[in-house]
């Protein structure tokens, strides 16, 4: 939400500055004339109201009811929320989703930046080959990825264990059946799937940093690490903010990977909030309860993105 105010004003300065002031004074009346702009954005807004605003409001209403999908919902007030607070499964799901978020923001995003740094090396050959190959996982369907990794990580026959057995003599690691290892496996798949995609944004940002800045810093005697913290990081701040917030939102609603790789198991050790919602609604017919969990997820994501935006924007002002 605040991303609007941070990102949008950042746009115009990038545009040649000479066009803007003239346009502002001369073209105010014709550009603002009539209802044309409203008609241009109308298709979006009609769809937006029908398929976003209405469902969000419906979610809030449903969350205050008990409903199995037939007949009329029974109003129960805040009982679903009270139940959620006491539900250990929901707490587990929140905890697991928090793990996915931390993995994304603290591991996947920095790795993407490192990959982008490597790809930004001057005179690198075959840069496009690397860039395109690293992006490919994003092109594939999550089911394809989950299927391949499910087979590779198979306890008795998987290639990963076969290799481990041959190299270190440790085999039969139950990658998807052990509560901790299953999280590790899912995190690795997340890393594999996202890192190339996110590095595209970082690479573009790095390429836009003027060389002179680095040269000036080097003249001042700054080493590689210092150049990275004093030149690179501030220069790519807006893109980093975008990448962090996007990864956060995607990870917070993660469904495909845990559902396809482990069904949330073993037990509930990889159950995410989105899976909790799916399970409550479509396997247990607790529609009101599922909606309440959705509203909680919405609030958490909303508040945290606000905080992230604020924190990252403060860093940028410095």
């Amino acid at each position: 939400m605040t991303a609007v105010t941070t990102t949008v004003p950042a746009g115009p300065p990038a545009v040649p500055a000479d066009a803007a002031p003239a346009a502002r004074t001369r073209r105010r009346s014709p550009s603002s004339g009539g209802n044309a702009p409203y008609l241009f954005i109308a298709p979006f807004y009609v769809l937006y109201v029908l398929f976003m605003i209405v469902p969000v409001l419906a979610a809030v209403y449903l969350s205050l009811t008990e409903w199995v999908g037939l007949g009329t919902p029974t109003f129960v007030g805040a009982r679903n929320y009270a139940d959620l607070l006491r539900d250990t499964s929901f707490r587990t799901a929140l905890g697991n989703s928090a793990v996915y978020v931390l993995v994304s923001v603290l591991i996947v995003v920095p790795c993407a930046l490192l990959v982008a740094q490597a790809l930004n090396a001057r005179g690198l050959r075959a840069r496009d080959l690397f860039r395109v190959t690293f992006f490919v996982p994003m092109v594939l369907s999550p089911i394809v990825i989950a299927l391949v990794y499910g087979l590779l990580l198979d306890r008795s026959y998987g290639v990963v264990n076969t290799v481990l057995r041959a190299l270190f003599g440790i085999g039969s690691v139950d990658w998807l059946g052990d509560p901790t290892l299953a999280k590790v496996a899912i995190s690795f798949v997340l890393l594999w799937r996202w890192v190339g995609y996110l590095s595209i944004f970082f690479l573009a940002a790095l390429q836009a940093v003027p060389r002179e800045l680095y040269e000036a810093a080097a003249l001042d005697g700054a080493g590689a690490l210092r150049r990275f913290t004093t030149v690179t990081l501030p220069a790519i701040q807006p893109v980093s903010a975008f990448v962090v917030v996007t990864s956060f939102i995607s990870a917070a609603q993660l469904f495909d990977e845990p559902y396809l790789l482990t069904r949330g198991g073993p037990g509930e050790s990889t159950l995410s909030v989105a899976m909790f919602i799916y399970r409550a609604a479509f396997e247990r017919q607790q529609l009101g309860y599922a909606a309440a969990a959705g509203v909680v997820l919405f609030l958490v994501v909303f508040v945290v993105s606000q905080v992230l935006n604020r924190v990252l924007a403060i860093g940028r002002a410095q």
Partner: peptide, 18 residues
């Protein structure tokens, strides 16, 4: 419009389905 980027799909999954 922009704020809808931060609405997780799981939030509207159930009501949209209904």
């Amino acid at each position: 419009m922009f704020s809808s980027l931060s609405v997780p799909f799981a939030v509207i999954l159930v009501p949209l389905f209904i």
